[in-house]
Design a protein around this nucleic acid. Sequence first.
RNA 1: GGUCGCAUAGCUCAGUUGGUUAGAGCGCUGCAUUCACAUUGCAGAGGUCAAAGGUUCGAAUCCUUUUGCGACCACCA
Length: 741
Amino acid sequence: MQPRYAPEEHEDKIYKLWQKHDAFNPDHYKGKKSGQTKPFSIIMPPPNANDPLHIGHAMFVALEDTLTRFHRMRGDDTLWLPGTDHAGIETQFVFEKKLQKQGKSRFQFDRDALYNMIWEYVQENSDTAVDQIKKLGASCDWSRFKFMLDEDVVRLTKETFAKMQKDGLIYRDIRLVNYCTKCGTSYSELEIQSVEQTTNLYYLRYPLFETPDEHIVVATTRPEPIFADTHLAVHPKDKKHQHLIGTQVINPLTKQPMTIIADEFVDPKFGTGVVKLTPAHDANDFAVAQKHKLPMNIAITREGKLTALAGKYAGLKVATAREQIIADLDKQGLIEKIDIAYKNTIKTCYKCARIIEPLPLPQFFVAVNKPGKSLTEAVLQTLAKKETKIYGAGREKILKHWLTNLNDWNISRQIVWGIRIPVWYQIDGHEDAISASFLNTAGEYTSGTLTELLKKHSLKTIAKGLQSLSADAEVPYIVGDSTPANRHEYLPETDTFDTWFSSAQWPVNTLKTTNKGDFARFYPTTVMETGYDILPFWVMRMMLLGIYLTNKSPFSEVYLHGLVRDEHGKKMSKSKGNVVNPLDMVSKYGADAVRMSLIIRSTPGIDKSVGERDFIAMRNLTNKIWNATRYVSMQEITDTSALPGDTVVSKKVATLSKDIAKLLEKRKIGVAADNTYGAFWHWFCDECIESHKQTTISLACLRKTLETFLQLLHPYMPFVTEACWQELHPESLLIEHAWPT
RNA sequence: GGUCGCAUAGCUCAGUUGGUUAGAGCGCUGCAUUCACAUUGCAGAGGUCAAAGGUUCGAAUCCUUUUGCGACCACCA
């Protein structure tokens, strides 16, 4: 053996050795173990298929592989199921950026071409994540690998949608959705960020209809949709304004009369105590409008421009329009004052940071709290019964908070990269209520209502080149994978599912499509291990849909790891330049060192700081393990008799094995790793090996103890321990070895 | 405004569910090297465990309050 451990000389070879022996596949162990073995399963959080791994991925690989290897050694029927995600919006965006660099835009391609281009792009890079996961030593069963867009997974995802539709848990309706005009799609409430901003609060004068010399003042941060204002509102008990209820004012832009109504949502103490109602562009106003059955005028398009309603401002972008409108109102003397340092919070797009435009669009929603069939209630009950245990510094409370306040889930996305919603709209009789855009054979776009389009084009032509379709909420539709066969005519939905709608079914849909019997054998899974940052996006939704589909929580434990921070405890970001690439560190210090650095002394739910110094320290540990083995393998067997120190040593190591196992079972992984490290270095190396030099313990005992330590260290540091094991026992594999007792 | 988390050595963090003299890594000081490993060993300095009060035979750990930091959620036009 060389005096130094060189990870690059061993890691790939050892990984191949494991694979050659099929050591990751639970079926490999079938019949080899005595008695009934209990299942242990982890579904890997599927990384984006074509993205390189970041340090957070290394964290999940390290933790999940540690648990997997530990349970495999304990003799459990152990499956770690790997997979990758199509990551709808993320991937489409990365691809669009690539197009942009080439001076192109996604709107230059028809949806099939765009989809195929992205598919190609993903295929080209799809091995990136998988290769890197292997480099980290993941002992997941690649024979059961799944991709979110695998045909069978897609089929099951659509079946879930159909089942939910049947059960009345899916509905299509006009709601104010969070729309990003830059990304060109709507989002659910979870993908929205709140940002505090300083903005102008305009105090505008609305002349009274009867006596136009008098006016009422309304404060607003958004003057541009005033065209769409339908009413003003005051609090019914507001003494100052009570007398105006039911009277009319003049809309300062359209000059049309508007009625003042009363509603308790108005806070008489805020601003002037008078609110303008813009039902189509404000969530509060929308709610009030529904309550009072007020009309909804649309002032802003999906492109973020003003509609024809805006007269001379039509077609202007929101920001430009605002300036001009304020200037014009000022000329008319309709501005009372402007508070230029007003602070409020606005919603922004989590992807591009643009301001989210609330727009009324007909979309598909999952009813999460339908009386009698409440998905959220079912999850809350599961949690109350402790059917699923959450590890992660108080995150269970956060989860409960989410579940008790969750709104219906918008699952429609206006992008092509994803699973198309399997819905068909009935055309005949609804031509006016459906608008579409299609590409003809000459490559030209044509759009309009179907009434207009069908005058010049056949339905077949439209269907063939269909790019986008927008049907009013009342248009009847049928759920299905192909054109419904009946006397009606149909066009398909063009929206795709929210990525998380398919991810939410991942534990169910993967196990149902791998090997026959896997679902019964491994579901519900044991541990769901992932970062706490996607608790509401993913974990909560897996519980919502998992329980809905199977009546069982998809996992009995949730282990939420913290975010990986830099060595100063700062958040990693490209702009700070403190991003650590895990694969660079792997090639520098070895996979074991990277894994151990992330795991040792980590605590669920608490962020973990790592830096080069930690990788170096753990690289030193790999070398220490290597050299301890080297020492033992260098000894010549002179006397095989036991020595007086042996009993104490073997007793202590047996206790240690038990203690470490208990810690790992209680998911105190960071503590287990730390204790194993300490015992190995400061007890085994510093004391036991020295005792052997003093001939107070025998070589046999020393060797046995070292082997035990290789077993104890193997879950965290699989490569070096296996490399050392091969020096001692080339006839067997450490990965297949039983946990020491 | 609400919820959650954190505060322990110079730095970054553990502390196995209340149990002697509070630990690790890095850093620092001194010594050691034909010895498995200098990616090493030995010795050492360094902490009133944020503050105050309470429960207890016993508190870094449980409870209350305060302060500071961080995250999330909700927000009033």
